[in-house]
Design a protein around this nucleic acid. Structure first.
Lengths: 206, 206
DNA sequence: AACACGGCATGACAGATGTCACGGCAGAAT
DNA sequence: ATTCTGCCGTGACATCTGTCATGCCGTGTT
């Protein structure tokens, strides 16, 4: 087996990215071979540097970490994916694993544990925070249809129904129907509340 | 002058905290003497370990970084403060400096630049991203009154007017008046939009 | 072929929301 | 003492929002 595990880091915050690199470089068997700050640069970097494991953040410009994971698994199957993100939304975990990720770690886990997670992923094991895994199962998949997610996303910045209808290319009445359906499914009594609940559950990719 | 600069790190994400420590420990003249994950542990840690510079995140449980900076300056005047945060909200910069911080750095600045910022702060200089400083001046102080901020904070999770009135201990009519005033000052046409705009400008400590 | 489901749309209705005009009260500034 | 400002409240009004019933279309299931 190879002497060192080659890593790719993807995180939009340069400081965090550099700091993670410094942390991981402390381990003799780990080597950071590439760093990117955008999701749509992941595949190209992986093609160029052939990492064994890619650490991807979910919140990234260009392409979110989940989509980047899917693209990466398709383009460079030899590279395994460990998602490292701020929020442990149940929906994130589920979707990350469906996208082909081997592991899921939140950023408030102890630093000492990260290198271990990387090694396990490199060895072909799955690494998921047990608490998150349970919560993910309990919450279940998103009950929201595509359009319902669309209108919630459009509603996220606080516009009026007219704005939402314009953004989603449907009539105002239809927009209100989708909003109403989403509110029913989330148990919310307000658009804003529905947006918040959907967000917290990871049902909105934004 | 002292051989090494002693540092205190405060960030609620353990992984980021540890990674920053690793990054800064790479510099021969820097030494991380304490790490905490909550704002209300900053002062005690500073008293115990006497750091020269404290790196504080703004978003923290217990006590936000701005308030922690204020408390730290009062309790341990010898320790200078460098705020290191995710969001470069104009209001954050202004309030951080008013709270006695010597510097303000966002987390997507290059990693190489952090050590420099720390050294400058330790030397008694001010360090503020020029772009942020200008934006902060242009945006100006918050035009919102205390109550207006209160109702916006209460409105942030998407409740109804009745919920907001209950949370802020005012009548529904008054709540709507404050909301209306806040919407007028922010140029918003919806509560949710007013919340978003106030957030983006750093006018809501949450 | 019949059916269920999601997306789209319309129309109508009750209730919530945002606006406005008013007035009272306390503290700071003049 | 007077004025100003911010805070609190009431009441009324036009509008927006959320709900419901209903219908059409296309797709995939049975």
């Amino acid at each position: 087996m190879s002497a060192t595990i080659r890593l790719l880091l993807a995180d939009d915050q340069a400081l965090v990215r550099g700091a993670l690199a410094a942390l991981l470089e402390l381990e003799p068997d780990l080597e950071v071979v590439a760093q990117v700050g955008r999701g749509d640069e992941v595949v190209a970097a992986a093609r160029a540097h052939r990492p064994d494991v890619a650490l991807l953040d979910v919140e990234m410009p260009g392409l979110d970490g989940i989509a980047a994971a899917r693209a990466l698994r398709a383009a460079v199957p030899a590279c395994r994916v460990l998602v490292v993100t701020t929020f442990g939304r149940p929906g994130y975990v589920r979707r990350a694993l469906e996208a082909g990720a081997s592991g899921f770690v939140v950023k408030d886990t102890p630093a000492a544990q990260l290198a271990d997670a990387v090694r396990r992923v490199a060895a072909g094991l799955r690494v998921v925070d047990p608490t998150l895994a349970i919560e993910s199962l309990a919450t279940g998949a998103s009950p929201l249809t595509e359009r319902e997610q669309d209108v919630l996303r459009a509603a996220a910045d606080g516009g009026t129904v007219a704005d939402i209808a314009r953004a989603t290319l449907v009539s105002e009445g239809t927009a209100r129907n989708h909003l109403s359906a989403a509110m029913g499914k989330t148990g919310a009594r307000t658009r804003a509340e529905a947006v918040r609940i959907a967000r917290e559950n990871g049902w909105l990719l934004g």
